[in-house]
Design a protein around this nucleic acid. Structure first.
Lengths: 258, 258
DNA sequence: TTCGGCATTTGATTTTTATCAATCATATAC
DNA sequence: GTATATGATTGATAAAAATCAAATGCCGAA
């Protein structure tokens, strides 16, 4: 564990409020490690031995079933992931792999559980972090169930622009096949959808996104605070692919009843 | 607030561990109320003023966007819902309506937040509840993204059988159009899918489900602990429609890479 | 620089799923 | 009991999205 890592971890919402000595003790038990790109850090189903903190690089959370898998989120620095499994001392529900060379902190989940039982301020931080994660997940599920793929893509593009500070142009933070999986569609479908959206106010050139007509795109997307955020507080930022600097209904939805 | 309601609330995982006087104080501020069927209890976007506890009846959590809406979960007694919004003092992400005549407890979220700040045992309970809710949501998202509609239906039918004690036959706990929306499909599609599944070991007669060939159905479903549960601990039971007593890939999945 | 691998794109096609319309069933109100 | 509303089913069609196959473009290694 490098001493210069500590302040960065300490300022995380999750660790910011806890007692000094508890933070020290927890970090004492933890260790930092560098991993190469493409390494599987966690396999779903394994016991949750460590809370992970991304200091540098990025990590993909993905899920597998039968012979398929899909991207659930991408975690950027500085954020934690798989807190819930650690809290419950239950098997991980998702796997994790590095997308690039990454530096992580591993906090033993047993120590974590022990500390929040004795540190009310830390307990409150854990509560806030979990609530934020939960709400992120709900937003995600809403987007999947209420929007079709074109709407998900368009809202994603607009949201990224906002997160980067309402910029007109930005670079996609992840490769497209991963984005496709995150958005619940195939790479081919994403590619075609991006092409189709050029008439709706956004142009894609390789990894670069250019908002050519924000008003038009916004009208199409109908961004919704309760899906696209931002949440008034932004505890669990860093999760869900953020960080860059007359349409058919989607499956399982029904017309609103009066 | 009826005195006879208190023990039932007290035994909930969320309230079980807290200090006696805190429980008393919290209940003092809360009130019970009966609602008719079909009443909208909560509208998404509203400030989270109350934690809700279902004592009798059932409540649908649903989400709306544009002119569509979809069922996110159904809550049965005795369970709480929308804890996360109350914790964060943020707008509800979901709406709620009674499905039948229901009796609820409303706990003011301000008092709730105040209490868990001063009661470590309660804080731990909140942490566990939120972690359980989060994991339920992750399972949900995994099912939506990794499975196609036939697989979602089949796994749902099998899971309900398990929850009822591995029974061969049971009654669907909700009407089919709601189930369809919960599973992310149209009622027509659900109807057809149920019919198709008759060759795979399950027969549907009205609201009654009969497992005719459990082995066959199980082989089709490939039930997965990390999607279908059960979670080792069952804190947030009652949510997600439980309580009853060579197939194409689904959207956005990709073949597993080696 | 060339090569090889991989992501992306494009096209053709199939499968899945939604939509629309109509009928049937069931339950409730009168 | 009959009428009516609502949910469920069925059939025909259309749209969305996946699949398969091939071409293109890009990047890093040799």
């Amino acid at each position: 564990m490098r001493q210069e890592d500590l302040p960065e971890i300490r300022q995380l919402p999750l660790f910011r409020a806890m007692a000094h000595e508890n933070f020290e003790a927890l970090m004492e038990k933890s260790y930092a490690q560098n991993f190469p790109a493409g390494l599987e850090l966690i396999r779903q189903g394994d016991p949750a031995d460590f809370l992970h903190v991304v200091l540098e690089g990025s990590v993909e959370l993905f899920a597998s079933w039968s012979d398929r898998d899909c991207t659930m989120a991408v975690v950027h620095p500085v954020s934690t992931f798989i807190l819930a499994a650690c809290i419950k001392d239950a098997p991980y529900l998702m796997s994790a792999r590095t997308l690039e060379r990454s530096r992580l902190i591993l906090v033993p989940s047993g120590d974590l559980r022990q500390v929040f039982r004795g540190d009310p301020d830390f307990a409150v931080s854990v509560i806030n972090e979990l609530a934020a994660c939960y709400r992120t997940m709900v937003r995600n599920a809403k987007s999947l169930k209420l929007r079709n793929s074109r709407e998900r893509v368009a809202s994603y593009l607009l949201r990224q622009s906002r997160l980067a500070g309402d910029v007109v142009s930005y670079i996609l933070p992840v490769e497209k096949r991963l984005l496709a999986s995150y958005l619940g569609m195939t790479p081919e479908n994403l590619s075609r959808t991006l092409r189709m959206l050029e008439k709706d106010g956004v142009k894609i050139d390789g990894m670069r996104v250019i908002i050519t007509d924000r008003a038009k795109l916004t009208a199409l997307v109908q961004p919704d605070l309760l899906i696209d955020g931002p949440d008034p507080d932004a505890a669990s930022a860093g999760i869900g692919l953020p960080m860059i600097g007359g349409i058919p209904r989607s499956p399982g939805t029904r017309r609103r009843q009066a």
